[in-house]
Design a protein around this nucleic acid. Sequence first.
DNA 1: ATACTGTATTGCGTATTATGCAATTAGGGT
DNA 2: ACCCTAATTGCATAATACGCAATACAGTAT
Lengths: 304, 304
Amino acid sequence: MELEQYRHFLVLAQTLHYGQAAQNLGVSASTLTRSIQKIESTLGHALFIRDKRSVRLSQAGHVFRAHALEADKGWAELKDHLAQENDSPTGDLKIFCSVTACYSVLPDLLAPFRHAYPGVQIHLQTGDAADAMSKVLDGVADLTITAVPDHLPSRCVFNSILKTPLVFIHSANDPDADLYREDQALDWSKIPMVLPERGLARERIDGGFAELGIRPKIYAEVSGHEAILAMVNLGFGVGVVPALVLEKSPYHNMLSILPSPKFSKPLAPYDVGLCMLKRDMSRSPLKQFWDLVLSLGNGGMDEI
Amino acid sequence: MELEQYRHFLVLAQTLHYGQAAQNLGVSASTLTRSIQKIESTLGHALFIRDKRSVRLSQAGHVFRAHALEADKGWAELKDHLAQENDSPTGDLKIFCSVTACYSVLPDLLAPFRHAYPGVQIHLQTGDAADAMSKVLDGVADLTITAVPDHLPSRCVFNSILKTPLVFIHSANDPDADLYREDQALDWSKIPMVLPERGLARERIDGGFAELGIRPKIYAEVSGHEAILAMVNLGFGVGVVPALVLEKSPYHNMLSILPSPKFSKPLAPYDVGLCMLKRDMSRSPLKQFWDLVLSLGNGGMDEI
DNA sequence: ATACTGTATTGCGTATTATGCAATTAGGGT
DNA sequence: ACCCTAATTGCATAATACGCAATACAGTAT
């Protein structure tokens, strides 16, 4: 008997409505139906009486409910006891994130985690943000700090930490600076650009220009947002990076933000957050990390 | 968390030996390893200390053991409570068996079951014993009374109820009776035979003759043991059926048993028993039926 | 009556997980 | 050093879970 199904049962026992309970649980109604069916078939008793228009607990259902509550309590107690153990939780945590994330958001998460779970071995790998999702999907990393992609793979869960817009930047060193120094409307098809060769930023930029029917003049395609900053700083053209990357870089006072092209709708901002596999939500120490981030996030929200 | 894994843990906690525990549990060592790993990763604590030469419970392991025992007890209590409910267990039970089994072994099983679980709807279907296994594998039937095949499909479990040998039978009406009436060695390549067209009996007979290098003279191939009796009784030749089938038939005093051919080893007797899917061992009312048969069988064993 | 709505269940294809076998790693004994 | 036992891991396969869409079935509106 699966502990998860106990939760399904308990929620349904409360709502007495499959659709509603399923929604609360974040599963489809058919999944809930089959969870209940499975318990019933294991026990050999119907737990609910599905009447014409009503769902209510059967006698056996009441008995099982008491048991399920008890089991739930036992589980909570177990976790309490374990939390009080002097040996802290163990395990490995493989984190992948971009350099920027590593400098900006990660420290705020890692410090309290490290303090709370000193027994967890942390493996931190930095790399191009464009690779983040695949690292997780391939199991190379357990979790990543990344921008939520337009289509989150179904195996993943995502928890937003902050949002940051994509900004167009240029350098005063740029020999072509006269192309866009004035306030007049800019001709983006003539301005040399330094773009990420792939990844979410590139997709959004491409999408924006495509809608305008403009083919941007690409001077260089590079891998890694930081590389864009370096090249823009050398005067190779206009770059596009998440504002956060600029802010956290050594270039933040050497580069300027340009007004964005007049896209039909502004480029969606980067929604940066924690991403991991659904499966790992029940695994330690991933669950711990997730919960910690959640609590930090909520704390921040409450303060607003 | 899977209740099944609690059992894995508890057995290992007792034996402190993976191989042994796995054997007790009827799973491979790797499965046991991964069960424990999964619990550990869910809890975030190592449950066992795998030392140089020893496996012993960690501190967290002791805590979890208390919890697991508690959960186990809770589960047992739940089943007690449910057993005392006035509404008896419900469910469907689709049984497939041969006519002979239906006459011979089934009543002894069905009667006490019916008495113990009046709420279970029983669907009984009879047919050729050769189909029994596939009916179960295809989900057409939940369980069957049949002879254990030489290679039990891995999805199935089997519980022996009785053994009965394959016997060669003939009728006094047979015009060819002079071929085998005397005590002398019989020439099986000349004796007309009535054989099942397929199924375990046929395989064994074919195998036996093949080893002797004899090609039996097949007069008729029929489907269903009972049909063999009918045809043998009409004097069409020598038939082969499980002794039980003969005993339970209306022909039992009209047909005679011949000495079996001198096979290199005697044909393996039919091992008749209860067969169902492993998967259903945890489902109701199949588990109940299985347990009941088990208890009856043990009762019988003890009396000897 | 007939169509419509809301709700639980089921068929079915697909994604995920579990399992056993065989290979591997590790420690201990000879 | 080399062999033996025991736990773990890679891998291919079997089993299971899941969601979507179709279905079944009442009650309600037209």
